[in-house]
């Protein structure tokens, strides 16, 4: 699992590589907590390099979203593989997250 944060203009972009599962979720959560300590207002999480997300991974993303919403930040997801997209559908989380097809679209959609 590999995590990279990058600033693109006003938006913070995070690219995750590898699985987001029970073993990696705790450290992903910690890295996000650190990155969001400065209360970034806009964040895009690019899941291009992720081919498996389990429920602890989903829950971690929900927690991050919850934290950001508390201070008025916005979070978007992009580049979900069809498999992961269907996982979001089953768990009804597609209604909770704003999901864009790619990074540029996600950044552009912040106004």
């Amino acid at each position: 699992m590999n995590l990279k944060f990058e600033n693109k203009g006003e938006t913070m972009v995070c690219r995750i590589d590898g699985d987001v599962d029970i073993n990696t979720s705790p450290s992903i959560k910690k890295l996000f907590d650190k990155a969001l300590a400065k209360k970034a207002a806009k964040m895009v999480v690019n899941l291009q390099g992720v081919n498996y997300v389990d429920s602890s991974g989903l829950a971690t993303l929900v927690e991050i979203l919850k934290n950001m919403r508390q201070y008025g930040g916005k979070l978007k997801l992009s580049n979900l593989s069809p498999k992961i997209k269907s996982l979001f559908d089953i768990t009804k989380l597609d209604k909770l997250f704003e999901i864009a097809s790619d990074e540029e679209e996600a950044i552009a959609s912040f106004i």
Binding site: I22, S25, K29, S56, L58, T60, E63, K66, T91
Partner: peptide, 21 residues
């Protein structure tokens, strides 16, 4: 989850909600 993972309590609570849903 509490016994086998290092997930935070909040995350575990979210997983529980998802599973019960």
């Amino acid at each position: 989850l509490r016994e086998h993972t290092r997930l935070e309590t909040h995350v575990i609570e979210t997983v529980v909600k998802m599973k019960l849903e």
